[in-house]
Design a protein around this nucleic acid. Sequence first.
DNA 1: GTGAAAGCGCTAACAG
DNA 2: CTGTTAGCGCTTTCAC
Lengths: 333, 333
Amino acid sequence: MEKQKVTIYDVAHQAQVSMATVSRVVNGNSNVKPLTRKKVLKVIKDLNYHPNAVARGLASKRTTTVGVITPNVADTYFSELALGIDDIAAMYKYNIILANSDDNSKKEIHVLNTLLTKQVDGIIFMGNEITDALRKKFREAKTPIVLAGSIDSKKTEPSVNIDYRQATKDEVSHLIERGNKHIAFVTGSLDQAINSKHRLLGYQDALKKYQLPYDPKLVFSTDRSYHSGYKLSQRLIKLNVSAAMVSNDELAAGVMNGLTDSGIRIPDQFEIATSDDTKLTKMTRPTMTSITQPLYDIGAVAMRLLTKIMNKDKITNQDVLLPYGLIKRNSTK
Amino acid sequence: MEKQKVTIYDVAHQAQVSMATVSRVVNGNSNVKPLTRKKVLKVIKDLNYHPNAVARGLASKRTTTVGVITPNVADTYFSELALGIDDIAAMYKYNIILANSDDNSKKEIHVLNTLLTKQVDGIIFMGNEITDALRKKFREAKTPIVLAGSIDSKKTEPSVNIDYRQATKDEVSHLIERGNKHIAFVTGSLDQAINSKHRLLGYQDALKKYQLPYDPKLVFSTDRSYHSGYKLSQRLIKLNVSAAMVSNDELAAGVMNGLTDSGIRIPDQFEIATSDDTKLTKMTRPTMTSITQPLYDIGAVAMRLLTKIMNKDKITNQDVLLPYGLIKRNSTK
DNA sequence: GTGAAAGCGCTAACAG
DNA sequence: CTGTTAGCGCTTTCAC
């Protein structure tokens, strides 16, 4: 004989109250006489009753679940963001449906659809670019959305980021001040606004500030993987450059190791600066000079912002920019 | 005027069929006349109808959602497992509710409870140890569970792993054959069966095989973080050891970098072997010799196994052991 | 092949 | 403070 699931009805019956009262107790509604509450609580415990979140979701139209779209769970950058998201979500009693998009816009739309189908109360989107199709979906879905560590060039959705342009400018300036005149700029796809409209401009800003010429041949666009960086290093060697500004830590590690393995001494013969300050920057040798981003905080603040929106609180600032910094490690002189 | 959500009723009405028929079409039930199907499909498209997964879950008692419990999303080992889990889940149309346990047994029970509350169809558990309280919960919940890359010392639940003991033995043997007589064994908590009942025994097996004495003073137990490894390296220096077998890649990277930063030359003066073959092993300098675990596959196979159990297919093998290997990189001679 | 109708387990007015 | 009563949107017998 299979043990039946115990429902709110069973509790109500056993405690000799109505379902409504049990529901009130379970949901912490204060309109219950202490004695009644106690009685119900006892029955709940005796029967080992656990409310069914699906039924609750259907009845209340709130699932206390948020969707999180990430290009890749195993990417250090995004997984450190996820840590912050998860912590705050747990704090506010939300569960997370994690959906991988593989940084593929078709899949992004697909997973967004299935998240909506699941009636998530809100969505955190991480991704390297927001296509118009996606933005349209965002608008259609009345579901609140916040972008974490991701740029929406049209600024239609709330987001949490750092000022990538300024940070890149600062870091490249640091490289220039150290005497580098020819600095490569290595980044992910330039189809992505975060790279073309922010980082690249920051790089150009720095050059301009020091009256150095901008040479498009020194700009390299590739995917954000270690392997790509490693391969790319060989092209860098052939160029007359003494430093590189890289927009992603795994990519930077690849460039640096590729160079090192080819006998180039970092930082003496070549300097490298990177952008994310993930834990990887401390694990490589030499360690990597980097822009410091509060990754955990970006995730956490994004989630916090989302809870506010879901709660219909007034939002004062849609586009949160968190402070960043620079940390000099051993990949620069 | 807020646009109303379109329901199955609207579709039925517009297509002049019953809700049952719409339901059949949506669920691919073959008992529908092709013409009717076509008509319904058209209305679905016209109305832009999306079935409500919550209502469906309540009615059908299947949510097509599985819970994934991980100690830490940002840990390289677990996030590479998660990649495999996620891919296969997507393939079988399951969504994933990701729950962080922080490797804390209290939290594990808590998140397990909330996953059950959400009526997940199954659970993938990753964790470094299964407490009795947790095992009890597993049993009580009729929900299918599979362990991925995690040991249940009592073998009550299905699991996917490699043979950690044999793999460790092989790797330590490799170290011994290279002439090391005093080899440290650095691992996570020995309260965890995977370390005490598998890896440590493998280490001892290897020593025995080569008739080397076992010295408990050479066994170090700590948490699985880079930082802990880094600190630990200072204790290693004071000992008469020439090599270390480390049970986790981040930990190993910490040990190695700590040693390197103290002027010890790897592998000439000290050899290190690690256990997980995460991408980190290729990013450190020197690269790390490692047991090779098919991390992605462990996750993928675990998820596949779970789909079978959820589907009530016959399972031939509850405890899957995937093949492992050894790869020699530059942290050993 | 198709429809009618009874829930799934819970919340949310509303009434008292 | 508590109970009654409709649903929430869908699946699933059971008839026809």
